[in-house]
Every structure is written in C-alpha cells, then in structure tokens.
Design a protein around this nucleic acid. Structure first.
Length: 186
DNA sequence: TCGATGGCTTGTA
DNA sequence: CTACAAGCCATCG
C-alpha cells in the first residue's frame, strides 16, 4: 500500500501549526514550525511527503506543539515518532545514525537550559560539532526535539530554521535569559 | 566518487 | 568589540 501522510493543522494566535503522521506506521514523520500562512505550513510537509490527507485526527498533538512554542513544558513520548534510520531508504525522517544520536542527545537538554553544538558532539563521543549543526538543521521534529536549545560555544544564539529571532523568543519563553544576541550564563 | 556545502569553533588582527 | 581564514566532519548531488 502506498504511504499517505495525515496532516493536522491548527491555528493559534494567528499562527498555523502542522503535524504529519504516516498512516502506515501511525508514527509522526514531520512537524512544521509555525507560519502565518496555512498553505505554507502544509507545503513544508508536502515537500517530502506529497501524498497526503488533511484531517483533524492529530489536532491534540498540534495543540501540544503550540504549547511548547509558547514555552510550556510538555512531555511527549518519543515512541510516537518515526526514529528509524536506514541508509538504503532516504525517505525516512532520520537520514543517518549520526543524525539520530544527535537528536536523541538534544532531547536530554532540560526545559529552560541550553547546550552548545560542540558539547553535544562531545557527549556523543564525536568531534563533529559542525556536523551536529547540520544534523539539527534537518531536525524533522522541531520544538519537540528541542534544537532551539543548542547554541554556539561562545553562547551567541546561532542559527535556526525559523530564524534566530524565533530561537531567541523560544528560549526567552522558557525562562532563558538573553542579552542582545547571547544567552546569559549563570 | 569527490568536491561543495553547512544552524560550527578557534585563532589572529 | 568585529572580521576573516583555516580547520573540521557528515551529507548531498
């Protein structure tokens, strides 16, 4: 059977949130960062998964994601995500084992805390801090896997898929002190 | 397969 | 403080 993606979208405070779930595995395959245009959040998912159905089936999940966006601490079971990797299948959400362990390590960063790209690399026993950045850039589950909590070694904010302004906002919302373009160390 | 390309880091000025 | 170069390593075409 061909894989279809069930997409649920919600609107909150003028922003659209979207989540994509595979109907063959029942696992989440993609989360979009919020946008003010509904078609844009949806097409962010369609780039990878053109075969889709719109449904409100996963609206609850989308609401939870919007809560995280606002800085709330929300626990979501990683079991709900498609975390498979397979070199011969480039269609999977995670493209490599390296990417997987980077994302899992990123999940360990507590709400309201930050970690550096270099330190993430160190924790997974790697020197590839630059590749940590590129792996996080491809994080299919932003907000849930808190790549916004990873900053540069000098504690400047670093880049973000939704722009560094959004990254700063997310961190501020969860209580991280920001001054200018830097996280204030405690 | 191999060069180009990054959500990076460090050193130098 | 800013700017830039060189080094780095996984990924992509």
């Amino acid at each position: 059977m061909t894989e279809e993606i069930i997409i649920s979208t919600i609107k909150k405070n003028g922003l659209y949130f979207a989540v994509g779930v595979s109907n063959s595995t029942n696992k989440i395959v993609k989360i979009s960062l919020p946008k003010s245009d509904e078609e844009e959040v949806i097409s962010a998912i369609l780039k990878q998964y053109p075969d889709f159905i719109i449904s409100d089936e996963y609206n609850d999940l989308a609401w939870k994601i919007s809560d995280i966006y606002e800085g709330k601490e929300v626990n979501i079971d990683l079991e709900m995500f498609d975390l498979r990797t397979d070199k011969s299948n480039r269609e999977l959400p995670l493209k490599s084992h390296f990417m997987k362990i980077v994302l899992l390590e990123t999940c360990k960063i507590p709400h309201g805390k930050v970690e550096t790209y270099k330190n993430i690399a160190k924790k997974i026993d790697s020197q590839a801090y630059r590749a940590v950045g590129t792996a996080l850039a491809k994080n299919p589950f932003p907000l849930i896997i808190p790549c916004h909590r990873v900053v540069k070694s000098d504690y400047s904010i670093g880049k973000y898929g939704g722009g560094s302004e959004m990254k700063k906002k997310l961190l501020k919302n969860e209580g991280v002190k920001i001054k200018g373009n830097n996280v204030v160390k405690k």
